[in-house]
Design a protein around this nucleic acid. Sequence first.
DNA 1: TTAAATACATAGTATGTCCTATATGTAACC
DNA 2: GGTTACATATAGGACATACTATGTATTTAA
Lengths: 100, 100
Amino acid sequence: MAYVKGCDMRGMLSFQILWLLSKKDMHGEGIAAEIERRRGEKPKAGTLYPALKDLSGRGLILGKKSGKTITYSLTSKGKATMKEAKTYFVRCFGEILASG
Amino acid sequence: MAYVKGCDMRGMLSFQILWLLSKKDMHGEGIAAEIERRRGEKPKAGTLYPALKDLSGRGLILGKKSGKTITYSLTSKGKATMKEAKTYFVRCFGEILASG
DNA sequence: TTAAATACATAGTATGTCCTATATGTAACC
DNA sequence: GGTTACATATAGGACATACTATGTATTTAA
């Protein structure tokens, strides 16, 4: 992603992952596809999987392996984290989204 | 800022600065104060001023010195950048706000 | 006219998000 | 079995955003 029209908008990957998983359980490729729909670019494997591993290691998401796929879901801790992060996000950027 | 309730939400500093300057011209401390109102924490000088310098160097903002203060305003290039960045931002995160 | 406060600047360091590879394991097909 | 495709994983490197700490002007107050 890097510079998007002159503005760096990296970051927020973990937040976006938590947001997507709060809607429905998904596996890595599904998450990548949903992010692509929003950002216009699909996060590379070397970006996405370390992030999933980090979230998993911090107990925010849980992965269940079935065949070649791992389906991730939010833990209760992940749900609480998502809720607080969202409150912060809205406080920071809500007005930008509300302005049209 | 670093981890905010378990989610990293670094980034977006340049975007937030452009947004604030699209509302009204401000000097560094004024921008810091506005960001503090939203994020809950004031960006440190070592964070804010390099960002302003970078935006200035890329021709997105213009600083006019008067005494010890430098009042920044968006250039026409900065306005265009802000508009495109906002479009992208809404596409990425608009639904989060819309969800209540 | 010092002293304090304000505004800006920079050096050095850390970290999460990015990338390009490369590698592993599973499934489906011929 | 062997090939192909898919899903996941890791190594190594780059960069913007963060921090702490220190430094330099300028303004204000004592």
